[in-house]
Design a binder for these strands. Structure first.
Lengths: 331, 331
DNA sequence: ATGAAAGCGCTAACAC
DNA sequence: GTGTTAGCGCTTTCAT
């Protein structure tokens, strides 16, 4: 049925070993026999079986990517970065959604090991000891992307979220705002806590009071942003600015404010996070922290290729630069 | 080093075959020995090697998905549908972006075959004879999602795009519009042509003239929509309504019109396509054809599982229902 | 430069 | 109900 390396060897009057050498670009083959083998490969329509190769060589050239939710535009952009670099280095990606459910994550990691992936890219809100233990048990390299390991054990690619949170808040303060809200996602996610820390640091530095009414944790969704806006704007001393933990939230807050009858940025300034394509898809366009999403994926994948290849890496905890992109949702 | 089935067999005083039976849930094992085996599996930390299993059984429980661009929100939602059902049936997905580049697609399909995937999910704008030939050569089942094969050779999951295009246009006609533009994506994509056909049919049926100035082909992006709006609104007899081939385009047209100083829907009605999350993330919210994106992915994957399992399928060309979701971008 | 042969870890007859 | 054995298709020493 299917053509194997053995068939090619027989037809070309050489050994399997020689065919294998040709297929794998081993230089120790006389040009004439190389041509002969190549010709019969062509003639028979031989195609190497990656599974057999994987079993024999203990390398599958596939890496597992565990992502919270691919339908989230942020992770979709990140995944594209991963994928492009993976392709460049001839790796395939096995993609899985975890919904940041710990049990599911642990189970997915296990499946990846069963499939003998050469490396793992992991994204989540929290890295527990169980995660660490599971990773430690194997010799498969792991890289975290937009994910913090508090113990700093695992290679990772991130931006400085605390600093970004600080800068966004400070920006709003410098605009003259004194009542600034913080609308974010899952309260327990480390990254959210870092943004929060930055927010608090900026407030304290400016001797502004911290008002718990201004701090809202919800989902990362547009809808959650709308609800947050409604809740904030009903307050007696409503905020004059909102720092949101994602663009989608920022968009929601803008629309929530508009539906409430307010003008953005005149009555309420809104600051987003990530600078996904969404930020230019609202009116007014969204001022935001630019997180180089695609690049984070790309750099993480690149780092992983080095690790899989056992190359020396100078620094395995990489922090990419971020910046503020000023648009029209702030004055 | 790694624990194999052989180690388990030795430690449990049974044969590899018995261990294999236990691992694969074969009922022909005495409960007591099953327990014994399970215990030593636990004790040794044995984990089956899917690659070896794949080689021996000729099944990898992996399917390849070739998608135009995962960072496109439409495909991201579709991919989520695929992934969820794949997980349900214990399959893993190898995800690849093709950018609808034919050479790349062909090459990706080849890689999937090398990796011995059990099935392929394929999405693109066009199915050429070369595609067909490549698919035909193997016994690996293929399912198309939101992709038309004009020769109707391959199983597929779609909606009736011609009808949807007709209904959207007719809706705008029934609103009293006589000058209706059509803003779409890649002109050569079959699906686009179907939407276009529906648009034309509705116009003809209403005895409305077909104006080439009103027909614009661009990208699927927000930006492309904005440019299209600008181009249309500069016309002397500018349209009073626009039917767009995607939500992102629709969003762009809305913003383009607003930037032009017009009000939507008062001065210009806008009709979108897909009903992704984006449609509720604009102001005014976007009236659109609801294409059950997630479901298309889910149904396609489900169909593929049946095909891989050699089950009889009653109908392998499935057309899912669509509907019009009325929002505020139309009067 | 080429070949022979021993696995890689598992499944799947087949035998008992 | 359990064991034996022959592959699956390839890589990788080790010879020559």
């Amino acid at each position: 049925m299917t053509v194997t390396i053995y068939d090619v060897a027989r037809e070309a009057n050489v050994s399997m070993a020689t065919v294998s050498r040709v297929v794998n670009g081993n230089p120790n083959v006389k040009p004439s026999t190389r041509k002969k083998v190549l010709d019969t490969i062509e003639r028979l329509g031989y195609r190497p079986n990656a599974v057999a190769r994987g079993l024999a060589s203990k390398k599958t050239t596939t890496v597992g990517a565990i992502i919270p939710d691919i339908s989230n535009i942020f992770f979709a952009e990140l995944a594209r970065g991963i994928e492009d670099i993976a392709t460049m280095y001839k790796y395939n990606i096995i993609l899985n959604n975890s919904d940041q459910n710990k049990e599911r994550e642990l189970q997915l990691i296990n499946t990846m090991y069963e499939k003998q992936v050469d490396g793992i890219l992991f994204m989540s809100d929290t890295i527990s000891d169980e995660h660490l233990e599971q990773f430690k048990g194997e010799s498969v390299p792991v890289v975290l992307a937009t994910t913090y390991d508090e113990n700093d054990k695992l290679p990772s690619v991130n931006i400085d979220y605390e600093k970004a949170g600080y800068e966004a808040t400070k920006y709003l303060i410098d605009q003259g705002n004194e009542r600034i809200a913080f609308v974010s996602e899952n309260e327990e996610a480390i990254i959210n806590q870092l943004k929060y820390k930055g927010y608090i640091r900026a407030l304290k530095e400016a001797f502004l009071p911290i008002n718990d009414d201004y701090i809202i944790h919800g989902q990362y969704t547009h809808d959650s942003g709308m609800k947050a806006a409604e809740q904030l704007l009903k307050l007696d001393d409503r905020p004059t600015a909102v720092f949101t933990a994602s663009d989608e939230l920022g968009m929601g807050v803008i629309h929530g404010a508009q539906d409430f009858g307010l003008k953005v940025p005149e009555d309420l300034e809104v600051f987003g996070f990530n600078n996904t394509r969404l930020s230019t898809m609202v009116r007014p366009t969204l001022t935001a922290i630019d997180q180089p999403t695609y690049d984070i994926g790309a750099v993480a994948m690149r780092l992983l290729t080095k690790l899989m290849n056992k190359e020396e890496v100078e620094e395995s905890t990489v922090i990419l630069p971020h910046r503020i992109v000023k648009r029209n949702s702030t004055k």
